[in-house]
C-alpha cells in the first residue's frame, strides 16, 4: 500500500513540471506587458524600460524560466508584481475560503445526490424516478454562472432571504482565525452569531457549486443501486421475507454509496472550475477570484503559482481517491 502511494506521489512531479512549462510558455506568448502598468500613469518610455529590466522581463525566456524554477524548487513561489506580497502568503490566506466552500458543496452534493439517486432507484420507473432524473439531467446542463446569478437574483435581491455577497456581513470583523474556515472557527470560539452569519453567506454559493456535481452523484448512486438491487443476495433475502427497506439501507445503499463517493474525486475538477465563477459572482474571497484577477492583470507569478497549487491539490485529491479505491478493491493495487 505504502509503495502504491509513494509511486503515485512520485508520478506527480513530472506532471507538475510539465504543467509549469506549459503555463510558462502560455504566459510568454501573451501579448500583454505588465511593465506599462507598473510604471505608472505618467510614465515615459524610459520608465517602462527600467521596470522591465528590474523584473527581468527583458531577459531571454529560458533564462527567466530557469530563474523561476530555481526559486520554486526551494518552495518560493515569488511575489506578486502588483502588491509585492509573497504569492504563497496570499494563497494561504485565501485558500481556506475556497476549501470551506468546496467542502460544504461536497457535503451538499453527497447528501443531495445520494438521496435523489436512492429515491430514483427504489421507485424505479415511477414518477419520482422521472422527476429525480430530470433534476440530475438539468444539473449537468445548467451553466454555473447563470445559476449563480439566478439564485442571487431571486433569493438575495428580490426575496432578500440571503446576503448577495461575501463571507460575512460587511460591518463584521472576521471571527478569530484558527482554521480559516469561518463555520468551524465560529463554533470553536463559541461565536454563534458569527456562525449564523457564515451559514447565511455560504448557502447560495455552496448550492450553486453543488448543483452540477449533485447530478453526477445522483446518476451514479441510482445506477449502481439498480445494479445491486438485481444481485442475487438481494432477491434471496427478499425471498426469505426480509422487508425491502431493511435490505436497502444496510446492504444496497452502502455498496452503492462507496461507488458514488469515489466519483467525488473526479468531481473535484468541476468544483474548482465552478469556484472560479461562483467566487467571482458572490465576491467570495478565495483563490478562484484571486486567479481570475491575476489573469486579467497579467500578474505572471500569481497565475503560475495558483496553477501549480491547484494542480497539486487536484492530483492529491485524486491520489487519495485512488487509495480509498485500492483499499476497497485490492485488485487495483
Amino acid at each position: 500500500m505504502l509503495e502504491f502511494i509513494c509511486r503515485r506521489i512520485l508520478s506527480l512531479f513530472p506532471v507538475i513540471l510539465g504543467l509549469l512549462v506549459l503555463t510558462y510558455a502560455l504566459l510568454y506568448l501573451a501579448p500583454s506587458d505588465p511593465a506599462t502598468i507598473l510604471a505608472g500613469e505618467n510614465a515615459s518610455v524610459e520608465d517602462i524600460q527600467a521596470v522591465r529590466k528590474e523584473y527581468g522581463l527583458d531577459r531571454p525566456v529560458y533564462v527567466q524560466f530557469g530563474m523561476y524554477l530555481k526559486q520554486v524548487s526551494v518552495g518560493n513561489l515569488g511575489v506578486s508584481m502588483y502588491s509585492n506580497r509573497p504569492v504563497l502568503e496570499d494563497i494561504a490566506q485565501r485558500l481556506p475560503a475556497t476549501i470551506e466552500l468546496a467542502l460544504v458543496s461536497l457535503v451538499l452534493m453527497a447528501i443531495g445526490g445520494i438521496t435523489l439517486g436512492t429515491m430514483g432507484a427504489v421507485w424505479h420507473n415511477s414518477p419520482i424516478d422521472h422527476v429525480t432524473r430530470m433534476i440530475s439531467v438539468a444539473g449537468l446542463a445548467i451553466a454555473t454562472f447563470w445559476l449563480a446569478i439566478m439564485l442571487q437574483l431571486v433569493f438575495a435581491m428580490v426575496l432578500g432571504w440571503f446576503p448577495v455577497r461575501g463571507r460575512i456581513p460587511p460591518e463584521m470583523v472576521p471571527p478569530v482565525q484558527i482554521t480559516g474556515l469561518y463555520l468551524l472557527d465560529s463554533i470553536l470560539t463559541l461565536n454563534f452569531s458569527a456562525f449564523r452569519d457564515a451559514v447565511r453567506h455560504i448557502t447560495l454559493p455552496a448550492i450553486t457549486l453543488a448543483f452540477g456535481g449533485l447530478a453526477t452523484v445522483a446518476r451514479f448512486t441510482r445506477s449502481s443501486m439498480l445494479e445491486n438491487l438485481t444481485k442475487e443476495y438481494v432477491s434471496y433475502q427478499h425471498a426469505t421475507g426480509v422487508p425491502f427497506r431493511r435490505i436497502i439501507v444496510p446492504y444496497v445503499l452502502r455498496n452503492s454509496v462507496i461507488t458514488a463517493v469515489t466519483q467525488l474525486g473526479l468531481l473535484f475538477g468541476s468544483l474548482i472550475s465552478g469556484a472560479v465563477v461562483v467566487e467571482m459572482i458572490f465576491d467570495w474571497p478565495g483563490i478562484g477570484s484571486y486567479l481570475v484577477n491575476a489573469i486579467f492583470t497579467s500578474d505572471y507569478k500569481v497565475i503560475l503559482a495558483v496553477t501549480i497549487v491547484v494542480g497539486v491539490i487536484y492530483a492529491l485529491v485524486n491520489i487519495i481517491v485512488d487509495v480509498i479505491h485500492a483499499m476497497i478493491d485490492p485488485r487495483l493495487r
Partner: peptide, 24 residues
C-alpha cells in the same frame, strides 16, 4: 486563551452603535 479571545470577540461584535462607518 482561545476562550478569552472568543469572549472578547463576542463583546466586540455586540458593542453596536459605536462611532463606526462601513465604506464601500
Amino acid at each position: 486563551l482561545a476562550l478569552a479571545i472568543a469572549v472578547s470577540s463576542v463583546q466586540f461584535a455586540n458593542a453596536e452603535q459605536k462611532n463606526e462607518m462601513v465604506w464601500g
